[in-house]
Each structure stands twice: as structure tokens, then as C-alpha cells.
Design a protein around this nucleic acid. Structure first.
Lengths: 262, 262
DNA sequence: ATGGGTAATTGGTCAAACCAATATTTACGG
DNA sequence: CCGTAAATATTGGTTTGACCAATTACCCAT
């Protein structure tokens, strides 16, 4: 009964691996919608049933989600498996934010350094696009777009390191931090001075990577995080003062600690 | 773009759940052969593609195995079905292992450096305990204890950094790597020379942290990871050679037919 | 009996079509 | 002019039927 023979390669496995690789490498980001099955089948040169079997495999792994009539989307389970518990924890223990920023300082610095060393021309093109989009979003007064393009920019850097852990972690941590900020501060104060400073910092990172100067890139990234850390601490202090004042006005204990997302 | 609506039940999910239940309940024991797809399809009242999608789901979970012309069998090692998406991803994409090691080199280096700077006396006490326990486990020939005490030691370092992200992440990544090694290589070659080298490397990290020499601690940690990376690559190469030799004996014409993917 | 060759079995893949839920566009009415 | 509802297009879900390829089972000649 035992079957020692070579396993015949299944086409659905090859397709699943191909899609999985695209997701891991970041060309299919979490939240992205896959092309329609009929198109994707043609593009990959396989029949629709085979494509569907591959998609079902990925769906059973929780990497994609399909809705009839809607489309098939890449889930963010990859990041959430690592950091879903963290979101709750961040709400309960705000001092975690400092740990996160310290960690990000190391991560983003290393990412910028490696990106400057290893980025291919394609990587630089993507980085340029993300950089331009982010600058436009920063000029406009759309905090939603600002946040998402910021993530895209840092993720583009992460992908240029050619290390999937860096790419996913840096994007996940940035997203985690942004969500946490939105949760706890509502809207971060966007004073024009900070905006322009952020823009110049991003530009410094961008040029250092483009000109392939690893140590300069690392320094620029670390400076950027240091600034974020400092200005965030400042905002928190003022927010705390405001809350204290409000508390003094009305003996009203508004305490919300359990904030479970996803 | 958000999908708040109720998910439509997919028939392939229902079929997969049905088969999974039969397997877990024991009416389909490990090693059993499923009925032919055509029969099973009519028995379950679904079409063959739907049945196949369900089977692919189970196959991707490692619960069944199919051979063209042979049949579909319930896999006999149910206990090895891990639910960690990163785990089977590492199996599918071995180059992830290199990414992981590169990432760990940065992480462990930074952890050792910060630990040397910040460890309190209590931290050092815990670190000493973990260090002693690990040494005992390495002297004994208990690979199980060796792995767990190794995790404990690195986690003690992580905790001494007073950054929860570092602590949890370094332990999680080490565990992930150990599981992956166990899964792919069975038992890692434990040549005595490697054992004593590992012991001395651990001792170097331990002393550097105890004596509060941050840069020495970082260097020792990085040396340690470099050694692990090199010896792991060596083991993988020899394993690959062994597999090649086996393949050569059975003179199988390896056939690559899936070409138009990606 | 045994060996080899043939036929039946069975998973793998593809094609075309239709259904159902969703998304998008259009048209209508306020 | 805007908002809402109907109509249309898009897209995943499912079925049928067919053919291919690997495996297994069978049968016959030696």
C-alpha cells in the first residue's frame, strides 16, 4: 500500500505557490484585490478550475478571502497572527508605545541601510512612486491618505531590503502604531512645521537610498523615528494635560482600556 | 470597499468540513483510501470540481494526500498538522530561512547590546539560571530540553532589554526556527564539536552581558547567529546531497511540466 | 506459476455554460 | 443639483462533460 513514488506535480500547487510568493514578496499587498478569476487564469495559462483549486488552498490557509460577486482579497492575517494580541496590549499599557518606537528605530534603520545596499532598479522605481504619492498626500489635508501612503513608503523600503520579515514587520508595526494613535488621540496634531519636517526627513531617507549610501540611510531613518518619538511624546503630554483639566472640571472618569480590533 | 455582509456559505467548505469530521471521528482512519472522486461526488450530492476544491483544502492542511491514478489517502501523521501559517510558509519557501536568520542576527545583536546596558540584578539572576539550565541540557543528550532551555536563555536576554517587543519576538522567531528545523531535517546533526562551540558562544554572550559590555555582547550574539547560519546551511547541503544520491539510485526522470507559471 | 501486455480505474486538467451575489452605472424623481 | 432606485455589468460559485496521464488490476501466453 505505501506509495514511495515521486509525487506528480499538481498544477494547482504551482499556481498556489506562485500566488503565495507574490503575496510574500509584497507585489500583492494585504487588502489588495486579486484580478478576476477568468483573467488570472488566462494570465497564468491555466484553466479556471485549476486556479480555483489553488485559491481554495490559499483560502484554507487564511491568506485570501473570496466573496461571491465581490472579488478575492489578500488578508492581513500574516501580520495579524504576529501582532493581533499586541493591539489590545498597547491600549492597556501605553508605555508599550515607547518600546515599539525603540524597536522601530532599530528596524527602520536596518531596513534603510539594507535597502540602500540591495535595492534593484525596480525597487527604486516603486520607492519613487510611493515617495511621490506620499508627498502629494502630505500636501493635501487628507490624514487618511497620509497614513496609508506613509505605510506604503515604509513598506517599499522594506521590500527593497529583499527580506520578507523586514518588509512585513515594518509595515505591520507602522500600521499598529497608527491605529493605536488614532485610537488614543483621535487625530494627531498636524502642525504645519511638523509636516514640513516630516517631508524633509522622508526626502533624506529617500535620497540616501536612491544614492546608495547605507550609513546615511540608516542615520536618516533613525533621525526620522527620533523625531516621531519626540513629537508623539509631546502630543501625549499635552493631551494628558488636557485630560487632567477636563477631569478637574467634571468628576467624570472616562476610562476605556479594552479596545479589541479585528 | 469594506465587506460587512454575511459570507455566503461555500459548498466546498461544507464538503471539506464533512470529510474533516469523518476523519476526526474515526470513520476515516489514517491510511484509509477515500472513495473515488466520481463516487464520492454523487454520494455527497455535489459536482466533482466542488469535491476537488474541498479535497485541495484538506490537502493543503496536510490531512489527505492524492496520487494521480492511485487514489486519495488520509495522511497518517495527523499530529504534525501545525496551524502556524508562517510554519508551512517556511517549508514552502526555504529561502525564507535565510531571511529569518538575517533578521535574527540584527535582533539578537541588538538584544544582547541593550541587555548589557540595561539589565538589573534581577535580570542577571534570571539570566544566570537560564544559562546554567541550558548548559546542563547541552551536556545531557536531551535535544528536547536543549531546545527549550535555548529558548529560555534567549528570552531571558530579551527580557533584560526591558523591551517587550524584543523579548517576545526573539523567542517567537527562535521557536519558529527550531520547529522548522525539526520538521525539515528531523534531527539536526549534533556533532560534539558543534555542541562545545555553541556552549562557548553562549558563554561569551552571557559573560559580556554580565560584565556590562554592550558592544562585546552584540558581537558575541552576531557571531553566534553567524555560526548557526553556517552550520545550518552545511546541514542542508549534506541533506540535499543525500536526497540527490537517493534520487540517482531510483533513476527517476524528474519532469518539469508546469512552466508557464509566474 | 510467471511474466508481460492490455484494459479498467482513478486523479488531473480543461472547456463552456449558467446561477447568484455584488459592484457599477444609469435613469428617474425630489 | 443631488440622492435614490432600477438596470446592467462584473465576478465568484457551481455544474456538466469530456479527455489525458498515472496507477492498478486483470488476463493470457509462455
Amino acid at each position: 500500500m505505501p506509495q514511495n513514488k515521486v509525487q506528480v506535480p499538481r498544477i494547482s500547487d504551482a499556481v498556489a505557490a506562485s500566488l503565495e510568493r507574490r503575496i510574500l514578496e509584497g507585489s500583492l499587498k494585504p487588502g489588495d484585490r486579486l484580478p478576476p478569476e477568468r483573467e488570472l487564469a488566462v494570465e497564468l495559462g491555466v484553466s479556471r478550475p485549476s486556479l480555483r483549486e489553488a485559491i481554495q488552498k490559499l483560502a484554507s490557509k487564511g491568506m485570501v478571502q473570496s466573496r461571491q460577486g465581490g472579488g478575492t482579497y489578500v488578508t492581513d492575517r500574516l501580520e495579524s497572527t504576529f501582532f493581533d494580541p499586541w493591539q489590545d496590549m498597547m491600549g492597556a499599557h501605553p508605555n508599550l508605545r515607547e518600546d515599539l518606537l525603540e524597536f522601530r528605530r532599530m528596524l527602520e534603520g536596518q531596513a534603510a541601510e539594507w535597502a540602500a545596499e540591495r535595492a534593484t532598479d525596480a525597487d527604486l522605481t516603486r520607492l519613487n512612486q510611493a515617495f511621490e504619492a506620499m508627498n502629494q498626500a502630505f500636501d493635501a489635508d487628507d490624514s487618511e491618505r497620509r497614513a496609508s501612503t506613509d505605510i506604503d513608503f515604509h513598506q517599499a523600503i522594506g521590500e527593497a531590503t529583499h527580506n520578507v520579515l523586514i518588509g512585513h514587520l515594518s509595515a505591520a508595526l507602522l500600521r499598529l502604531m497608527q491605529d493605536n494613535i488614532r485610537l488614543n488621540l483621535g487625530e494627531l496634531k498636524t502642525i504645519p512645521a511638523a509636516i514640513s519636517l516630516l517631508k524633509s526627513q522622508h526626502a533624506a531617507i529617500h535620497t540616501a537610498i536612491t544614492e546608495r549610501k547605507p550609513s546615511a540611510a540608516r542615520a536618516a531613518a533613525e533621525t526620522h523615528i527620533d523625531f516621531v518619538r519626540e513629537s508623539l511624546a509631546q502630543s501625549l503630554r499635552s493631551a494628558a494635560r488636557r485630560q487632567t483639566a477636563e477631569r478637574r472640571l467634571s468628576a467624570n472618569t472616562t476610562d476605556f482600556s479594552a479596545s479589541s480590533i479585528s
